[in-house]
């Protein structure tokens, strides 16, 4: 594989990972109450604040923002891999870039389903 193809393959794979990470981050409950950081504070306060879930606004929208950016990132990974296959297409390059492009497309489809399904 030529240097450029190796770089794009590695970078696109990184982007797929970033997309998965961002989506996961958006779904996290960032409640400071539950955070381990506040263990000391929790011990001293018997009365916890009323809970809000990840489906409550605007946390739901913040999650959508993360998923939306993750979607863009996954599309970017698929686009870069496909463009690189047009430029460099030795068998091994096609195999590696194609596999990464398919992974990115799968991530795109999955993220789009989540993104569209969470429309308020």
């Amino acid at each position: 594989m030529r240097f450029e193809a190796v770089f794009v393959a590695g970078y696109a794979l990184l982007l797929v990972g970033v997309a998965a990470g961002l989506h996961r981050l958006g779904g996290q409950d960032t409640s400071p109450w539950r955070s381990r950081m506040l263990a000391g504070h929790r011990r001293r306060t018997a009365d916890p604040p009323p809970d809000t879930g990840s489906a409550d606004w605007p946390h739901s929208e913040a999650g959508r923002l993360h998923t939306g950016i993750a979607l863009v990132t996954a599309v970017a990974a698929a686009t870069l891999s496909a463009a690189e296959m047009v430029r460099h297409h030795r068998p091994v390059e096609i195999a590696v870039l194609g596999a990464i492009a398919l992974t990115a497309i799968a991530a795109t489809v999955r993220l789009w389903a989540v993104f569209a399904g969470s429309r308020p």
Binding site: T30, P32, P50, D56, W57, P58, H59, A62
Partner: peptide
């Protein structure tokens, strides 16, 4: 991180 708490208060 604190901004999330800021905004979550708004949600509540």
């Amino acid at each position: 991180i604190e901004a999330w708490t800021f905004i979550r208060l708004g949600a509540r």
